[in-house]
Design a binder for these strands. Structure first.
Lengths: 349, 349
DNA sequence: CCCATGAGGGCCGATTCTGTCCCGCCAGAT
DNA sequence: ATCTGGCGGGACAGAATCGGCCCTCATGGG
C-alpha cells in the first residue's frame, strides 16, 4: 500500500475520506476552470449545487478560495497545496496504483491517468490534454526538436499548453496532411504548439500518403527535405493513437485492405502504422513522415490517447514502440488493466 | 514532514482531521479501558457524551466495536488498525515529531510520549506505564537480568505488564528499601514484575542507605552478595526519575546537605544520584544498590517519568547516563523541548 | 445602450443532529 | 434474594443544518 495513513483513513473514516476527496476534486477543478461558478462546477462534477456551495464557503474560510462576481478562483495559498490535492484525489481513485501497474505492464517510463472516461464525457479530453501538456513541458529541453501528429487528442494537448517563458524548440509535423479538418492537422498543431512554447516550426505541405516515385520527386525540394531531416533528428515525438477502424476510415484505405487488416486482428494505429494487439506491424503506409526505424535512439515517445474504446489500440502501439510517457484516462486505463492482467495470469498458469 | 497527506489534510480539512483524530482517540481509549461505557469514556476524553455515542455507533457499523451490556469493546477487526490509529493520533498531536526531537536532544535511542500531563491528570501515569511496559517487553530477551527501582512510575509500569508467555528473566531491585509505602518499594515491584513476566526474582532486604562499614559486613551474607552480583550483571535497568526536592524529602537528607544541593542546582535524582541540569553528579548516596560505573557496557537503561514538573529532572538524568528508552508524557516532553531548544539556540548564537 | 447570461448570496421549510433525560437490564456486592 | 451502579438504547424538544429555489447584480456581446 502506498500510504499507511490513507489505508487507515479508508478503514476508519470512509465518510471523511469521501468528503476530503470531494474538496480536493473541487479545488482541482477550480484550478482548471477558474474563474467558474457554482452551477457549472456542479454540473461538471455531478454534485448538487449546494454541496459545491458549502464546500466553497468552507474553502473560502480556509483561505484557499476567492469569491467574486466572476466566480470562484484559487487564492495564492491554494496553489501551494494544489499538487498535494491532486495526488490525493488520484490516490483515492486508485489511479496512482493503476499508473504504476500500467507503467510496468506496458513498459513505459511513466503513465499518467486523468479521472473519468473520455468516451462518456468528452470534457475529459481536456484534462488529458492538460496533463500531457505538463508532461511534455517536463520532457522538452532547450534546443530540442519535437515532432507532433494530428488528431483530436494532440489538439487538446496543444490547446492546454500554457505559454510562458519561451523555450527554444523546433516543432515539426510527424506526418503530412491528412483528412479534412484543418484544426486537427499535424501542421496546424505544430504551429500552435510552437507558438505556445515560444519556439519555431516547419511545415510539411504534402499529403500524408504518396507512392515511392512521387516521394523521390518531392525530396528534391529543399523545403521538404529540410523538414524531413528535422524529423529524423527529433528528440521528442508527441502523438495520438487511433483505433484501427477509426484510422482506416480517416486514411481512406481500400475495402480489400480494410478487410485484410481486420482479419489479421488490427486494433491500433499510429503514424500510419497498423498493429495487432501484440504490437506486430500489419501494415505501414508509405509516404512522407517520421520513420520509427531511423530515429535517434535517444528519441522519447509521448503518447496521448483516451477513452475506453482505445484501450486495445493503446496496448498495441505501446507494445510496438517503447514509450517514455503515456497519458490516458481512467476509462482506457481500467480496460487496459483488465486486458493485460487477464493475459498475464493466463501466461502465468 | 512525516507525511504529505497528513499535511494536506490538516490544511484542507482541519475539521475532518479533528473528527478522525477523535475516532482514533476513542478507539485507542477503548482498547485500554475496555469494556467501558459512554459516560466514563466521555469524562476521560473531555468530550460530550453524545459525541462518543455517535462515534460509537459509527465504529460499530464499521465493525470495529462491539456493544453489549458490559460496555464497548474492540472487535478483532479493530486490533488490526489499532496500531495505525495510535500512530495517527500521536502524529496529530505532534508527538511523533517531539519524540524524534527529544531522542536527538537527549541522546536516547528511543523516546515515547503519552498524551496528556501527569501533573494535571494522574491517570496519564497509567498510560505511561502501559507504553513503558510494551517497550520493556520489546527490550527484554530470555535469560536477561532486569534491575528495577521503586517509585510511583515504575509501579505503574509493573501494573501494566500483561502476563503472557513466561519469559525467563531474573528481576532484582536496583536499590535497597526506601521510604514507607510497601507498594512502591523496589522489592515489591521486582516481585510483581517478575510474576507478570513469568520470571524469577531476588530481593534485597536492606535499607537503601548504609555507611561503608556496614556495607562490608552485609556483603558477607551470601544472600546479599548474590543479589549484588546479579545487579552488576544487569542487562536492562528500569528506573524512575525524581525531582531533587521530592527525592531529598523521601531520602531524609539532612538540612545542610539539602541546602548545599539546592545551591549547587540539583534538579534530578535517580539511584540516589543527584544531578544538576547539565548532568553533573552533585551527590551520590553510598550504600547498597546498582553502581552505574560497574555495569556491563551492553546494559540498556530504560527511564519512565512523567509530568511537566519532572522535565528538568529527566533532562539531568538523561544527560548523566546514556539511555536506551525514555517513556514520558506530553507535559514533560513539551517543557523539556522548550528548555532544550532554548539552550540549543543560545549555543548556536 | 441594453439585455441575456451566469455569478454569488439570501430565504425558508424540511430534515437532521444535539443535548439531556430516562428506562430496562445485567453483574457483582451485600 | 436483593440492591445498586453503570451499561446501551430510546425519547424528545430545540438548535442547527440541509436542500431547493429565487433574487439581485456585474458583465460582455449585440
Amino acid at each position: 500500500m502506498e500510504n499507511g495513513f490513507i489505508a487507515l483513513m479508508r478503514k476508519l473514516a470512509p465518510d471523511l475520506t469521501d468528503e476530503m476527496t470531494r474538496r480536493a476534486m473541487i479545488l482541482e477543478r477550480i484550478s482548471v476552470m477558474q474563474p467558474v461558478g457554482r452551477r457549472q462546477l456542479a454540473a461538471r462534477l455531478n454534485l448538487p449545487e449546494r454541496e459545491i456551495r458549502n464546500t466553497a464557503v468552507l474553502l473560502k474560510e480556509l483561505g484557499y478560495l476567492e469569491l467574486d462576481a466572476s466566480g470562484m478562483s484559487l487564492s495564492a495559498k491554494a496553489e501551494e497545496i494544489l499538487e498535494s490535492a491532486r495526488d490525493f484525489s488520484k490516490a483515492m481513485n486508485g489511479l496512482t496504483e493503476s499508473e504504476r501497474k500500467l507503467s510496468r505492464l506496458l513498459g513505459a517510463e511513466r503513465v499518467l491517468i486523468a479521472p473519468g472516461d473520455c468516451d462518456a464525457d468528452p470534457q475529459v479530453l481536456n484534462d488529458v490534454g492538460r496533463i500531457c501538456a505538463g508532461g511534455l513541458r517536463n520532457v522538452l529541453a532547450s534546443g530540442n526538436t519535437l515532432a507532433v501528429t494530428g488528431g483530436r487528442t494532440v489538439a487538446a494537448v496543444a490547446r492546454s499548453i500554457q505559454s510562458s517563458a519561451p523555450l527554444n524548440v523546433m516543432v515539426v509535423p510527424a506526418r503530412g496532411g491528412l483528412g479534412r479538418n484543418v484544426e486537427l492537422q499535424a501542421n496546424t498543431l505544430a504551429e500552435e504548439i510552437a507558438g505556445r512554447l515560444g519556439g519555431h516550426y516547419r511545415l510539411i505541405h504534402l499529403p500524408d500518403h504518396m507512392d515511392a516515385a512521387a516521394m523521390q520527386e518531392m525530396l528534391k525540394m529543399p523545403e521538404v527535405s529540410e523538414a524531413m531531416e528535422l524529423l529524423e533528428r527529433a528528440d521528442v515525438i508527441l502523438h495520438g493513437i487511433g483505433t484501427a477502424q477509426e484510422s482506416m476510415r480517416n486514411r481512406q484505405i481500400g475495402r480489400n485492405a480494410q478487410n485484410r487488416l481486420m482479419a489479421d486482428g488490427a486494433v491500433g494505429e499510429s503514424f500510419g502504422v497498423f498493429c495487432d494487439i501484440q504490437g506486430n506491424v500489419l501494415m505501414e503506409s508509405t509516404g512522407v513522415g517520421v520513420d520509427l526505424a531511423r530515429l535517434k535512439p535517444t528519441c522519447r515517445m509521448i503518447a496521448a490517447a483516451a477513452g475506453a474504446s482505445k484501450a486495445e489500440a493503446i496496448i498495441s502501439i505501446l507494445r510496438h514502440t517503447h514509450h517514455h510517457l503515456l497519458v490516458t484516462d481512467q476509462g482506457a486505463a481500467e480496460r487496459m488493466l483488465r486486458i493485460l492482467e487477464r493475459t498475464e495470469h493466463a501466461d502465468g498458469e
